[in-house]
C-alpha cells in the first residue's frame, strides 16, 4: 500500500516528487482511519483501497462500523454531533479531510444511496434534477449572482455539471438506473407514489445525475422485497462498468453474488480484505471463516 501524506491536498504531486509508486487503481485510499463518536472508537485503525470500477462490499455484524466507514468517505459523518475522524482518506489523490476540500464537491463526486429509499416529495424530474441544480447554486456562490444571468434567457435548462440539457440528464440517469421504461409517463408525477423498489432505483438515478465517480450504498436492498432487491443487484453489476461502487450489506450471499472484492469488519477493525471468491472460499483468517460459516456474528 502506498503511504499517504496527511493534510496535503494533492497527494499525487507529493508522491511524484518523492518518487513513490503511484497506485492508479484505487479510487479511494483509506489509511489508519479512526472514527470516534465522543469517546467511543467506532473505527479502529482501518487501512484499505477501494479499486476503480469494481464493486467492493463491506460485510460484518451489526454495529461493527460499516455505515460509519461508508459515511466517512463522503464526509456525511461531519453531520453527526461528536463524530471525529483521524487518519487519512484520499479520493482522486486528494485528502478529503484537508481544509481546502469543498465538501459539496466531494459529495457530488462521491454519491450515496441510503438504506431506506428517500426520494424528496417532489416530481420524479425534480428529484433527479436536484443534484445538478444544487451544484448550480454553488457555482453562483463562487462566481457571483450574475454569473447565471445569461442562463435565464436560455430556453432549456442545462446541467451545470456537464452542460447537457436537463431533460437529457434526467432521461439518461433514469435509463442507467433501469427505470426509464417503467416511469417514462410519470416524469412529472410525485416520486412518493412509486413503489419501494422504484423509489430506490430513482435514488440511484438521482445520484447518477451529478456524474459521480464513486457510489456508496448502505444496505440498499434491505428494505425491499426479493424481486426489487434482485433488480437493484443487477443494476449494481451494470453500474460497475462505469462507476466505483462500495456497498454495505449484511447479506453474505449478496456480497458473494455482486462484488469483486469484499472486506470484513469486526468491532471497528478490518479483519480481512480480498477478492470475493478468495475470501469466501479460502479465507486467510480464522475469524473470517467463522463469520462466513455463521459460527459467530
Amino acid at each position: 500500500m502506498v503511504p499517504l501524506t496527511k493534510g496535503k491536498t494533492n497527494l499525487r504531486e507529493i508522491r511524484e516528487k518523492e518518487k513513490i509508486d503511484i497506485s492508479t487503481e484505487a479510487a479511494v485510499e483509506i489509511r489508519n482511519l479512526d472514527v470516534y463518536y465522543g469517546k467511543e472508537r467506532a473505527i479502529k485503525n482501518v487501512s484499505l483501497d477501494i479499486l476503480k470500477k469494481k464493486v467492493t462490499s463491506l460485510i460484518g455484524p451489526s454495529g461493527c462500523g460499516k455505515s460509519t466507514l461508508l459515511r466517512s468517505i463522503n464526509r456525511m459523518n461531519d453531520l453527526v454531533d461528536g463524530a471525529r475522524v483521524e487518519g487519512t482518506i484520499a479520493v482522486d489523490d486528494r485528502d478529503i479531510y484537508s481544509k481546502d476540500v469543498q465538501v459539496s464537491k466531494l459529495r457530488q463526486k462521491v454519491g450515496q444511496v441510503f438504506q431506506k429509499p428517500n426520494p424528496f416529495p417532489k416530481s420524479v424530474y425534480d428529484n433527479i434534477a436536484f443534484g445538478p441544480r444544487a451544484y448550480r447554486h454553488h457555482l453562483r456562490k463562487e462566481k457571483g449572482v450574475f454569473s447565471s444571468f445569461k442562463g435565464i434567457f436560455r430556453r432549456e435548462e442545462r446541467s451545470p455539471i456537464d452542460g447537457r440539457p436537463m431533460d437529457q440528464v434526467v432521461r439518461d440517469s433514469l435509463e442507467q438506473a433501469a427505470l426509464l421504461d417503467e416511469i417514462e409517463e410519470k416524469l412529472h408525477e410525485s416520486a412518493i407514489d412509486l413503489s419501494g423498489g422504484q423509489q430506490q432505483r430513482l435514488c440511484i438515478a438521482r445520484c447518477l445525475a451529478t456524474k459521480p465517480e464513486i457510489i456508496l450504498m448502505d444496505e440498499p436492498t434491505s428494505s425491499l422485497d426479493p424481486i426489487s432487491a434482485g433488480r437493484i443487484e443487477d443494476l449494481i453489476e451494470e453500474l460497475s462498468q462505469e462507476y466505483t461502487v462500495l456497498i454495505v450489506t449484511h447479506n453474505m450471499q449478496q456480497a458473494a453474488r455482486i462484488s469483486d472484492r469484499t472486506a470484513l469488519l469486526w468491532l471497528g477493525e478490518l479483519i480481512e480484505m480480498g477478492k470475493t471468491e478468495a475470501l469466501f472460499e479460502k479465507p486467510e483468517k480464522e475469524m473470517t471463516e467463522k463469520y462466513i460459516t455463521g459460527r459467530v456474528g
Binding site: R107, Q108, N118, F130, G131
Partner: peptide, 16 residues
C-alpha cells in the same frame, strides 16, 4: 432527517 441527508449527500449546501 432522511430528506436532509439525501439532499446533503447530493452535494447541496445546508441553505439549499
Amino acid at each position: 432527517d432522511e430528506f436532509r441527508n439525501g439532499s446533503l449527500a447530493l452535494g447541496a449546501s445546508k441553505w439549499w
